[in-house]
C-alpha cells in the first residue's frame, strides 16, 4: 500500500521559495501567474493494513509541522 503526503504551508505563512519561483516564471515571460506556493510531496510505501490513524500520526509527529504547515493524505491502491 502506498500513500502520498502533500505538505503545504498554511495561508498567511510567508513562502520566499514560492515568491522566487513566481519571479522566475515572470522572468521567462509567463505573465498570467497570480501567486506561487511551494510544498512537499512525501511518498510512503506502507505495510498492508497500516491504519489511517498511524498515517495521520506520522504526519502530525514528523512529516508536517502543524504550526506552519497543513497536510493531506492520499492513499494509492
Amino acid at each position: 500500500m502506498k500513500a502520498r503526503i502533500f505538505v503545504t504551508l498554511k495561508g498567511g505563512v510567508l513562502d520566499p521559495q514560492g515568491r522566487a519561483i513566481h519571479h522566475a516564471l515572470e522572468g521567462l515571460g509567463f505573465d498570467g501567474v497570480n501567486d506561487v506556493r511551494a510544498g512537499k510531496l512525501i511518498e510512503l510505501d506502507l505495510a498492508d493494513g497500516t491504519s489511517d490513524e498511524d498515517i495521520d500520526g506520522m504526519c502530525r509527529k514528523l512529516l508536517a509541522n502543524t504550526v506552519i504547515e497543513n497536510y493531506r493524505i492520499e492513499k494509492v491502491a
Binding site: V13, L14, P16, R19, N65
Partner: peptide
C-alpha cells in the same frame, strides 16, 4: 527546540530568501 515543542512557534525561511 521549536520543532521539539520545548518552545512555541517555528523558524521559517528568511523573508528575503
Amino acid at each position: 527546540l521549536t520543532e521539539s515543542g520545548l518552545l512555541p512557534g517555528a523558524l521559517l525561511r528568511n523573508a528575503g530568501g
